[in-house]
Design a protein around this nucleic acid. Structure first.
Lengths: 118, 118
DNA sequence: TCTCCTTTTTAGAATCATTCTAATTTTTGG
DNA sequence: CCAAAAATTAGAATGATTCTAAAAAGGAGA
């Protein structure tokens, strides 16, 4: 794991948000002013391939990156804001119905967030 | 609902696949040789806005469009193939845990498809 | 430490699905 | 039939992401 890769993983893991490439890039630049956007793409893609980071492709939005700790996502139907949601683990239920092992799942719940409800 | 809009909805609803814009465009052209790609984009986006069609944005793949009948998706981790999966409805469970109504949810299960298992 | 080979980074061009713009055509309501 | 609104068209523009080729950095062995 290279210096940049480690720092990018740390940025994603310690962030409270679901970061875009540009946000990761700007955060990293505070530490490493000489880093270039392509390097962020390279390393983030590597982290995603190695399953150390989750890529969140949400329709109508640019891609965001998330830590791998197990959780689901709430997406506001109005403003698009993404929040974390901890729902019970469905893995065994899904495997039972499917009749085979799964690699994982991605559950996104569309709702209207408290801010937009007002 | 315009002629093109109706035909595009029909193409998506009667297809056994999850179609890309280009596949929809090529299918429609068999009936309507003069139609243009932008018209397909316009009408598909309209159908998605009106919730008559589901947009499937899957990471690493171009967007696909699907009928609205309630079902979940299996995505092969190896070849990326998408299949339908009918899992029990989670809406009430999710609403109970969330403590509020939801607009819907999107459940995608990553697994290795039978073809890739061989 | 020096050399060789691999990996990573860099800069900038290229890609390509999608959106936008402005003009034209079609549809609709009175 | 006419005017206004909506839909379609052609083609340019957009913009996130990927690609390319060269430069830099890292690592293993002698």
């Amino acid at each position: 794991m290279t210096k940049y890769e480690a720092k990018i993983l740390d940025i994603i893991n310690t962030s409270q948000k679901h970061m875009t490439i540009d946000e990761i890039y700007n955060t990293l630049k505070q530490d490493e002013p000489k880093v270039v956007l392509a390097t962020v793409y390279n390393n983030v893609n590597k982290l995603v391939s190695n399953r150390q980071v989750i890529k969140l492709s949400i329709e109508g939005q640019i891609d965001r990156y998330d830590k791998v700790t197990k959780h689901d996502h709430l997406i506001c139907s109005v403003c698009g804001k993404i929040s974390d949601f901890y729902f019970s683990d469905l893995t065994s239920k899904l495997e039972k119905e499917l009749g085979g092992v799964i690699d994982g799942y991605d559950l996104r719940i569309r709702y209207v967030c408290p801010d937009c409800k007002k």
